[in-house]
Design a protein around this nucleic acid. Sequence first.
DNA 1: TTCATTTGACCACTA
DNA 2: TTAGTGGTCAAATGA
Length: 346
Amino acid sequence: MADRRGDGMRQQPPYSSGHQERVFDGGGGSSGGPAFGNDYDPGSSYMSLLGSGVNPQQLLPAPPAWAVEEVAPPTINITPQFSMANYVPTSSYQQQQHQTAASFVAPLAANLHPYKSSSSSYFQADPLPQWPPRAMAPSPSSSLLPRNFTLHQTPAYPHHHEQQMHMQLLRAAALGGPHAAPAPPIEQPAKDGYNWRKYGQKQLKDAESPRSYYKCTRDACPVKKIVERSFDGCIKEITYKGRHTHPRPPEPRRAGAEDVAAPGSAHQEDELSDDEDDGEEGHDIGSGAGGPAGQRVVRKHKIILQTPSEVDLLDDGYRWRKYGQKVVKGNPRPRYYILTSINQKC
DNA sequence: TTCATTTGACCACTA
DNA sequence: TTAGTGGTCAAATGA
């Protein structure tokens, strides 16, 4: 890869190879107006607190979605199966992940989900992602453990029945039920509704795979994102820079998806995003509307996650692990799932 | 022909 | 001050 020089010059601490989420904002957004990018609320949507009745905001500071750097040190040991898939994403990264990994699953399950909630339909609004990892030989130096990761586990799951139901639906979808969508095609870093153009790729020092640089294709939109993948091709880290100066482009609707997609159309998705932008998130820090892009404003926060179990293993050949739940207006539902481990799905 | 991606090189930041 | 590194540019290439 280009410009790969001086490998080994700088050693990173163990388990420091990724799972950071960073959102840099160039101040392009308005403090009062909607932020079109990074519209995922890291504070209120820390899919933490699975039905625990605890307001995530009580446990987590509400970092602005556009200026977050999660650098909390790891506090627990993760199972060997831990990979990108069960990394706990936050903020924009979480947005990416639940639109990527989750949309990988959710469109399948959405048709089967008994609840026509905004959660399933939210995913449904997304086209099928094209995201399976490339077949790559595992790197012996690659760590499956996340860095800067704090996990709080809860043994009890207050909505176990609901979770089971949802998992069954996901399982049926994964097995290819009558409503199951076709297998997602390959390639597409992270479908988040925006259009990106790759303008660079670079192999970083000690990186498992090259880092890809994307720009928003919309004219004059300063947003860039950097996608770093793990050895198996899973997205390990996504860093956003700046804010979109335009709304999310409308999603093309797939034939046959209208019915289930209706409750969760892009419009509702935007509504959700707007709701999530309420509060401190989305408030610019240090720069008002029209500020220069590229300003790096960083806030640190700790991820808190509570899950009923570390890994939910189904007999469908896939290893499912719920990595979070978002409480939406007092209606908690299992929402974000990610595929991990077996069969190398992300 | 157009547009997106790839990739080598250059620039700027930082320790 | 300098070397290493990450980020970006832009020509080449491919679809």
